[in-house]
Design a protein around this nucleic acid. Structure first.
Lengths: 243, 243
DNA sequence: CGATCCATTGAAAGATGTCAAGCGTAGTGG
DNA sequence: CCACTACGCTTGACATCTTTCAATGGATCG
């Protein structure tokens, strides 16, 4: 059984616990001992999967929990002042979201499934309690938040300094490396989001996204077939991404 | 003695502790009791002021502490992949920075004084220790990080959806409201950063910054004299900021 | 099978960037 | 104290990129 298979079976088994989950080295710290992982496991709630388009929570919902993505993909988005939707992130399996609500007790984002997705719900008050007993858990959780900050700062850099072409290249490489981390193919994958979402996130219009995809394809850097993308020249893309 | 004066005297007195600090309701939670504030105070280190251009820490420096700005102003910046400086934030008195290093133990930003500035250094290991005894402190610290995430998401929205004019308007209003929080004038203030830094942060060139300032001035929305900015029509600016 | 949404492509317009020159200000050293 | 220099800021003309508007084709889902 290859890792992909293992992962797939994990997807549909709601009962799998943290110890057995293929993703635990991503979403939870290596530093947590197995017996501690059991404790963590005991507070985690696993609900039924979200269907495409369904919401995990909405802006201004009271913050109660953080969530680890188990399968599928989700987008977080908020309404900016002018009433436009602004996508703030895409979340793939093993990644943790929901920390936005901790600031003032209300979520600042809405979270919507891009595809059928399942998540582990981790009630924050219990996590906090457990953190007192497990200092490494507290540290890990803060590290997750810190990395989120760093990621978003890099996003700001991307938006400020890169043209549309290198934004797309960067995003494709980001998805690629996140897939690799999960032992999936780094070269060929399904983009979970629409061109529109992609453009919204990267700050360019759908039309431009489309044109860039066509351009990259004509140059032999990628191949596309609807949602499927194959990276044909990763080095070339990396060069592009560095504008 | 007006608040501005009080604040100014605070600036030059290195000995002032958290209890006496005019900024403690900003950088520290209201929820911390006075006696607890004493404990926090005891771990805080106060160094000599940084001069303009000096660094508080550099990218890849080991993470040891977080810092509360006491006076002056600082910018955080990182080198993006293409080797360009990217400013990721401006920090004014009462604001806390340095959480970027928590993720993997190394700072992902450099921090540089925009003007003579003093900061309180809060060693993180001691803060963590203290957090175990003071759950409200731990919670507050996570809230600071969460708000940082939210702020940066809003920044992403700004960069994605707003033109140069409303970016500038948004930044001016942001500085204004942060001044107000410190009981300084919300209408008239000195911009601590250069046009170049401002443009770098907002993702526009110095020339465009200059042109927009001229345009806003000709429309009677602001008045400028070098670093000094007066907001003449805050409502007008707010309308602009909403694209 | 139709309806709807999503994606693609073209042509024109608009915004910002680039290049270049000139001006003001602040700081330096005589 | 003044003059000089360096740097930051401003302004103009032009180039470039992306958006906007519009039309068409294709996929998906009831």
């Amino acid at each position: 059984m290859d890792t992909k298979q293992t992962y797939k079976s994990c997807t549909h088994n709601k009962q799998v616990n943290c110890n057995q989950c293929q993703l635990n080295t991503i979403c939870m710290p290596v530093s947590i001992q197995i017996k501690d992982l059991d404790k963590l496991d005991s507070i985690i709630q696993r609900g039924k999967p979200l269907h495409k388009g369904e919401y995990l929570f909405h802006v201004n919902d009271p913050f109660t929990s953080v969530y680890a993505v188990r399968s599928g993909a989700l987008k977080t988005h908020l309404l900016s002042e002018n009433g436009q939707e602004q996508i703030t992130g895409f979340y793939l399996p093993g990644e943790v979201l929901g920390m936005d609500g901790l600031g003032n007790g209300l979520h600042t984002n809405s979270v919507q499934a891009l595809d059928t997705s399942s998540v582990c719900k981790i009630p924050f008050d219990q996590l906090e309690e457990l953190s007192v007993k497990l200092p490494s858990l507290q540290r890990h959780f803060m590290q997750l938040m810190s990395r989120e900050i760093t990621q978003e700062q890099q996003m700001i850099g991307l938006l400020n300094q890169k043209n549309a072409e290198s934004r797309i290249a960067s995003l494709l490489l980001s998805i690629s490396s996140r897939n690799k981390r999960r032992d999936l193919s780094a070269n060929s994958f399904l983009l979970p989001m629409s061109r529109k979402d992609l453009g919204n996130f990267l700050g360019i219009t759908t039309e431009t996204v489309s044109r860039i995809f066509a351009r990259l394809q004509s140059r032999g850097l990628i191949a596309t077939a609807q949602k499927e993308v194959t990276l044909l020249d990763i080095e070339g893309l990396q060069t592009l991404a560095k504008t």
